[in-house]
Design a protein around this nucleic acid. Structure first.
Lengths: 223, 223, 223, 223
DNA sequence: CATGAATGAGGATTCATTCAT
DNA sequence: CATGAATGAATCCTCATTCAT
């Protein structure tokens, strides 16, 4: 009996341990693959990246990847969802501490640029693959990403309701305008001009244009 | 004699006609393939597009494509160079008639949006493939395209030298900002919001933001 | 009437002229293509040679080749038949003037080596393509070539009947032995050793081995 | 305990067995492909052979071939190098036991003929593809093969230094002569005359010619 | 007869995915 | 769970051949 119960106890313990280990293993494997995929997708693009490349980068066997992801597209989607998910959470937290829409825009810009400067691989993936993906995976609604860009529309609307932002701009268009600009500018760190600009500098310039426009003297505008 | 000379005349005429037709055929083959490729790339993306798709769309045999292009990448590059080349020429002409940098920006925006609304396939290809391509074809410098985006930097610099645009914006960054915004906004016609917006409306909104910014009252800005 | 008959006369004359020209054209085109094919096959081998290569070499349009030959194999066969045919005729003539089988072998060797040294392209084609061909064109019996190698068997048999050549050698095997040796030795002019050897020198050495063998002292042989 | 240790023993045994099997599988995959390729190349020739043919013959998927070889040419080269490598080793061993150059030639001939009669596929590949290949793969120096034919030059030189072979024959030419003859004669088993000749018979005849020549009475020769 | 643009069948090669170990 | 050898579907590209001019 003792032995039996001991044995069982041992088994339970072992099982728990195994599960923990497994989970830890899992988690780290999953994370390692996501990280590797981000890097490889950034470098080679989704289509030219091979599963074998990702496996090698993750120091994992090719087959192992299919224990964590259904297929190649699934990896791409996961990269988006998980990595962008993190950014969305972070920005949401920051925005929660602000009430001034001007400050919120500033926070959004700064945080985005910081993230993209720090994680250039992700920046590349977002910029390059994002649009392509929609074509491939028709049934994939890039929820996290939509959520992310929609934050801008929200800020604009907030600013308009507070009569700080002009009412004659449609939040929908402003959102696209704003994100497109931000996205393209972020790429500056992936070019030869790499070291030339600081986040603050660029953030400052974007804000200037966004808020006050290019004109020297106000009231001179075409519109 | 008259009849004889007439006969010869007819022959000459026929020959000319044939040559013209032949030339048109040739020209149209190349053009047809470019058009087909643009359409197919737009719909399926460069990588998922098959040569057979393009051939079918162009109503041409697979092998025929290789009489006009070296390989699949060459088709893509040709689409860029030729189609963007046309836009660059058009915009350059328009810009030549303007001196006011504000009007020039307006012309640039309007012309770009018009083109993209009219040729949505090209819009997709530019937006989706442009960046991806650079990774693949390292030795391909997208000259026409660089030329196109550099026009904005020129306009900004012009405006600054005329003290119409603020001097504290770097043309380099403005260029990216401006093109990124324009590019992303153009995609609006490829979404479900398709019929909702007119070129004028969007053009107007972009100009407002670019020139005067989002703020209601000038002088309230952060910067 | 005069004019009419004159016209007809002119037509007849023109027709004749045209036919002559056509025939000359024909002949020269055919010959040009054979020559070009020999050159191209020699350089690139049958399979890697393209019809377009031959056409270019012959300064003729691709399609023109199909006015003179049924297909690619047909060109190869024609090269054999026509070029080897010439050699066979030449050697037969020479052999007709000899009665001593030793002299006949000498003549055969010398003539073969001379031809191959002069027309290295043909040499390559014979050596490289000959065997390959049999596999491809099952119904093609390389008649001229068989005729050519059979000449050796005939000479050996003649020598044996005259009791000049040993009777314990089978002409069949001697034929293969002899031609294989000759063929392989001919390739010496297509290697880097090109200028090193004269026809006479090699011819002399082959004869020595064939007739008297490698042994210094007769009677010492294994057999 | 005994049982337990026995079980472990069994496991170890099983593992070893599995590993052996696995290794055999691996080894046999490579070997199977080489064998299949040899057979297919022999039957259809290098160019008309399709990878799918080889794969089918080897009972392997098309793609599997590329796990063991870089491309089609690589298969051909491997066939040469590995199969000829074996022959070279065998002949070298045999030659090491001989000092008499006459016996050495005999050994060389017999061994070559034996091999070619046994492995007719290899014989075909050597004979048919060998020369063709050089044109294709310029940077491939058929080392094993050169080594193989050079053995003859060595033997001839040895015989000359021992004053058994005539000094007025250049080893270089003798080598070509000898190999060409041997090679062509080997083909006799790939023709309709297949069953007619034994290795010994042919070997005997070749030796006779090589050593003593065709002439009945010594001293009657032309040279 | 001559041309060469057009054809389209054919094949080498890649790589996402599976599955026996 | 992890592995990585094996698979075979999928596709770009070549080139012999045709045929309208």
């Amino acid at each position: 009996m003792n032995e039996w119960s001991f044995t069982v106890g041992q088994d339970i313990f072992t099982n728990l341990l195994n599960e923990l280990c497994a989970e830890m293993k899992d988690t780290s494997k999953h994370a390692k693959i996501i990280a590797a995929a981000t890097k490889v997708f950034a470098k080679k693009g989704f289509f030219t990246a091979r599963i074998a490349d990702i496996a090698q980068e993750a120091k994992v066997a090719d087959g192992t990847i299919y224990l964590y992801f259904n297929n190649k597209y699934d990896i791409l989607i996961s990269v988006f969802e998980e990595e962008i998910g993190k950014i969305v959470e972070q920005i949401k937290k920051v925005l929660a501490t602000e009430t001034d829409p001007r400050k919120m825009l500033e926070a959004y810009i700064t945080r985005h640029l910081q993230t993209m400067k720090r994680n250039r691989n992700l920046a590349e993936v977002i910029q390059i693959e994002l649009r392509q993906t929609n074509k491939l995976i028709k049934d994939y609604r890039n929820n996290k990403f939509t959520e992310y860009t929609d934050l801008v529309a929200d800020i604009v609307q907030l600013g308009q309701s507070q009569q700080i932002f002009r009412a004659d701009i449609q939040p929908d268009i402003a959102k696209r305008f704003f994100f497109g600009a931000l996205d393209e500018v972020s790429r500056i760190w992936n070019t030869s001009a790499e070291g030339k600009y600081s986040v603050e500098e660029i953030s400052d310039q974007l804000l200037k244009i966004i808020l006050s426009g290019l004109l020297v003297q106000k009231g001179n505008g075409i519109s």
